[in-house]
């Protein structure tokens, strides 16, 4: 089946990287995020209690990375509308993100594919994002799928 929307020209976006963005992780931002999601775990909320754990201090909850947005290369698609859905994410966790860390966030287009949906072509754009700390250690990777139709 020939692609209608995901042409060779569109596919050429695969591998394209966005500009890196840098964030200083503040303890208050971690606590505010934990409060917003309703997670009272002391390792995300209480510095004194977190110091007693093997982490040695407050760390960020697994989806805190959501608050550190990345620059995602724009993919121009010949679609009638601008409808987009967040299809989901695959996260991998290597090191904790700690209060005081300086995190560099960078995204790249990992894949673009097309299927025939009920309402016409559906395009799946897979974006891979890495979150690295000030020691150049990768803390978290995220693979998310945006569906456009």
């Amino acid at each position: 089946m020939a692609n209608k929307v995901v042409t060779d020209e569109v596919r050429a976006n695969v591998g394209k990287q966005g500009e890196p963005r840098v964030y200083d992780v503040e303890r208050g931002a971690i606590r505010r995020f934990a409060e917003a999601i309703g997670d009272l775990n002391p390792i995300f909320n209480d510095e004194a209690a977190a110091r007693e754990t093997r982490f040695g201090g407050m760390i960020a909850p697994p989806t805190f990375c959501r608050s550190m947005g990345s620059a995602i290369p724009q993919v121009a698609l010949d679609l009638p509308g601008f409808r987009a859905l967040d299809g989901g994410s695959d996260w991998e966790y290597f090191k904790p993100i700690r209060a005081g860390d300086r995190i560099t966030v960078q995204s790249k287009i990992a894949d673009i594919r097309e299927t025939a949906g009920r309402l016409g072509p559906m395009v799946f754009i897979v974006v891979e994002t890495s979150y690295s700390n000030q020691f150049a250690q990768i803390c978290v990777t995220q693979r998310s799928t945006v569906i456009r139709y």
């Binding site: 999601i37 309703g38 997670d39 909850p61 697994p62 959501r66 967040d86």
Partner: peptide, 15 residues
């Protein structure tokens, strides 16, 4: 937000 539900599952698993 889908990501909020993602966060709930994150809490389930870190607990």
């Amino acid at each position: 937000h889908g990501a909020l539900k993602n966060a709930f599952l994150g809490q389930l698993m870190t607990d």
